[in-house]
């Protein structure tokens, strides 16, 4: 079984800092990591390989630094990787990104499953996975929480939807995006790390994959960012401390007043 896992390198956002003047993220000194939600996709691929054998290829579109993310994926257990990188790809929106990734995947030859993360923690769109599926004209399961079976060229999966789960079956090749519930990502192994150190990751630019220049980068992107700004997060909240019976009752009174005034009860 050949599995392709598109992974994105994103800034580590757990202590993200914003520049209050420009409203942009302070990127200096911010570490880059594999999109945390892509780790579940990698883990899913590794488990499928453990069960059915085969090969896993991590693919990423991004700047040269994204090689690090691919190597980390190799350290976790991916067999190979490829980086799609070209100055002309810069500024791609989700349409153009899906286009480039789909064409990169096509160039990899035959494959059975493409497994994406649910969404990237920087762009937060969750659009690239379905976009890739659409460009490749493949069946798609989003929000996949469990793989039920793979046999006779079909994969049966469970997806998390409003109010419960849905089971669907797809013919292979197929695409999916996965949620955290599907697996617990493993840590890189020592053997994996050694392999990652040595591996040569090919870098493909515009001319390597059959993409049209007018379809990539800012020029190929149907959307435009008009402005970016920082939301007002802080609220004019009232805060009361419970210290004894009396303040406890006061606090409960306050909550009750709030609920009644806003007609929640």
């Amino acid at each position: 079984m050949k599995i392709v896992v598109p992974i994105k390198q994103v800034p580590e956002t757990s202590n993200v800092k914003m520049n209050p003047e420009t409203g942009t993220m302070v990127r200096e000194g911010v570490e880059s990591i594999i999109n945390p939600l892509d780790l579940y996709a990698i883990e899913t691929a590794i488990r499928l390989k453990e069960q059915f054998g085969g090969k896993i290829i991590a693919i990423s579109m991004g700047p040269g630094s994204a090689l690090e993310a691919i190597k980390e994926a190799v350290a976790m257990g991916c067999d190979d990787g490829v980086l799609l990188s070209d100055g002309k790809f810069a500024g791609s929106d989700t349409w153009a990104t899906s286009y480039v990734l789909a064409n990169g995947i096509k160039k990899l030859g035959e494959y059975d499953i493409v497994i994406c993360g649910e969404r990237a923690t920087d762009g937060d769109t969750a659009q690239v996975g379905p976009g890739i599926a659409s460009f490749l004209d493949l069946p798609l399961s989003t929000f996949t929480s469990e793989i039920l079976s793979v046999k006779d060229g079909r994969i049966k999966v469970k997806r998390l939807v409003e109010g419960g789960y849905e089971e669907i079956e797809m013919t292979l090749p197929a695409t999916m995006t996965v949620v955290k519930e599907i697996s617990d990502p493993r840590l890189p192994t020592l053997r994996g790390k050694l392999k990652a150190k040595k591996i040569e990751i090919p870098v493909w630019g515009l001319q390597h994959i059959a993409v049209k220049e007018e379809n990539v980068g800012l020029k190929g992107s149907p959307t435009r960012v008009v402005k970016i700004f920082t939301p007002k997060v802080a609220r004019q909240g009232e805060k009361i401390a419970v210290r004894d019976e009396e303040t406890l009752n006061e606090a409960v009174d306050k909550i009750m007043d709030f609920l009644i005034k806003k007609e929640f009860i």
Partner: peptide, 19 residues
């Protein structure tokens, strides 16, 4: 608390049963 319209500093196991 930075996000809260109403913040209660206290033990939820004390407050919620009364609420």
């Amino acid at each position: 608390f930075h996000l809260a319209d109403l913040g209660i500093v206290g033990d939820l196991n004390e407050i919620l049963p009364i609420l």
